Amino acid sequence: MREFDYQRLVIGYHGCDASVRDKVIQKGDQLQASPKRYDWLGHGIYFWEHGPARALEWAKEQKKRGKLKTPAVLGAVLHLGSCFDLLDAEYTDMLAQAYPLFVDSTKAAKKTLPNNRPLDASDKDQLLRDLDCAVVNWTIEEFEKDGTAHFHSVRGVFQEGLKVFPKSGIHRRSHIQIAVRDPACILGYFQPPSKR
């Protein structure tokens, strides 16, 4: 197994259709990285860190939108490898410093700067994170292009949803999310026990 710099194992949960979960568990299929332009942490295979209930809630939301049939959760043991960890000021500082360079690069290429945007009129969290995705992808690609660093995963924390009570700083859907860029970080999958 390849040596990883970032020595941290975590349990992650992937919300998906039961057919995807079953193919991974029973047939050894692999999850595919999401290439969506609005993914919060750039391109990767997404997991909720230690959040099976939030993963299932997300899968149920996808069913309501007609994107999957039977909501399910797939568990995984993850080794974060060299992690672009946005819970560490070193990496948020890097991202802040990269942003103006990203803007300059976008303008030089005569492209339109992406924006984060709401999913619908009721979305106050701007769930479609086109700008965040573009900046994270660009920053990591720049590090990799010049050989400065190679990142296996990206990790971030998000406050999302309604406040749990008036004037609270705690939100109902707050979570830590991981985008696995290198599938070698996924050490194994498991089917979490279902709650009754």
Score class of each variant (00 low, 15 high):
R155D: 08
R117L: 08
L101E: 03
R117Y: 06
Q126C: 08
D125C: 02
L101D: 02
Y99R: 02
F143Y: 15
R129D: 01
K110P: 04
P166E: 15
K111V: 03
G161V: 14
A96C: 01
N115E: 15
L162W: 12
K111S: 01
F158P: 02
F102N: 06
K167E: 06
R155I: 12
N116A: 04
A134N: 06
H150K: 14
F158C: 02
C133H: 04
H152T: 12
T106D: 09
Q159R: 05
V157C: 14
C133P: 04
T148L: 11
E144V: 06
V157N: 14
A108C: 07
L119C: 06
N116W: 11
L127T: 09
H152F: 11
V103E: 04
E141S: 08
S122N: 09
L113E: 14
G156V: 11
D146M: 12
N116K: 09
K107D: 12
T106G: 03
H150S: 08
T106H: 12
F151L: 10
I140L: 14
D146G: 05
S153Y: 07
F165L: 13
R129F: 06
V135S: 07
G169I: 09
T139W: 11
T92Y: 01
V135E: 12
D125P: 03
K124F: 10
L131S: 04
V135A: 02
A149I: 06
